[in-house]
C-alpha cells in the first residue's frame, strides 16, 4: 500500500472516530431514569417481596430499609448452598448488631419443606429463613441455579449478584466492611 493511500485512510478513520466520540453524549445521552427500575442486576433496585417464615410470620424486603440485606436463595438438596451457609452465619453474627440481615429464602416449590426446615434448625442458623412456596420470588429474581446471592444495599439497590459459591464468608465480610466503612 502506498503511503498516500494509507495516510488518507488513517485520517478518515481518525476523524470519524473523533466525531463519533464527541457526538456520543448528544446522540446517546445516559438515561438516569432506570435507577428506579427494579431488576436483579448491579445498580438497579432489588425487586421487593413479602414472604412467610416457616412459623407463618410475614417479612418484607422493605422492612429492612436503611440496612444492607443479603437475599440468599437455597435448597436443602444443594450441597454448595449447605457449604456456603455456615460462613454466612459467622459473618451474620459479626454484623447483625449493626443492622445487617440475611434472608435465607428456601426455594420450597422445588424442595421438601420438612428437610429444609430440619436442616436449617439443626445447624443453628440465627438468620431469617423464608419460604418461596409458589416460586414467584424465584421468577422475579430470575433464578437459574441455587445458590443465588443478591446483596442489597441500604437504599435497596443491588450491590452484587452471585450465582454459586462466590458469596463466601471472606467475600461477604469484605463487602460489608466496605458498606459500613463508608458510613462511618
Amino acid at each position: 500500500m502506498r503511503k498516500r493511500v494509507f495516510t488518507s485512510i488513517v485520517v478518515t478513520v481518525v476523524l470519524l472516530s473523533l466525531s463519533w466520540i464527541i457526538l456520543t453524549p448528544t446522540l446517546f445521552p445516559v438515561v438516569q431514569a432506570n435507577t428506579d427500575a427494579s431488576a436483579v442486576h448491579k445498580g438497579f433496585q432489588a425487586p421487593g417481596f413479602t414472604l412467610q417464615t416457616p412459623e407463618g410470620q410475614s417479612i418484607s424486603l422493605s422492612d429492612y430499609e436503611g440496612q444492607p440485606v443479603l437475599v440468599f436463595l437455597w435448597a436443602s438438596w444443594c450441597s454448595i448452598c449447605k457449604r456456603t451457609m455456615p460462613g454466612l452465619q459467622s459473618v451474620y453474627e459479626e454484623f447483625a448488631p449493626e443492622g445487617f440481615e440475611i434472608l435465607a429464602i428456601n426455594t420450597s416449590f422445588q424442595d421438601s419443606l420438612t428437610n429444609a426446615a430440619s436442616y436449617f434448625e439443626s445447624q443453628g442458623y440465627t438468620y431469617t429463613m423464608l419460604l418461596d412456596r409458589d416460586g414467584s420470588l424465584s421468577r422475579d429474581y430470575q433464578l437459574h441455579a441455587v445458590p443465588l446471592s443478591v446483596l442489597v444495599g441500604p437504599e435497596g439497590e443491588v450491590i452484587d449478584v452471585i450465582i454459586g459459591s462466590g458469596m463466601s464468608e471472606a467475600y461477604l465480610r469484605a463487602k460489608l466492611t466496605d458498606i459500613y466503612g463508608e458510613r462511618d
Binding site: 452471585i162 462466590g166 458469596m167 463466601s168 471472606a170 467475600y171 465480610r173
Partner: peptide, 20 residues
Amino acid sequence: QNPSALAGNPMAIFSLTPSM
C-alpha cells in the same frame, strides 16, 4: 484492597471462589 476478608479465616486466600 479488602484486608478484612481474611479476618475470619486466613485460609480463605486460597479459596477457589472467582468473586474475590
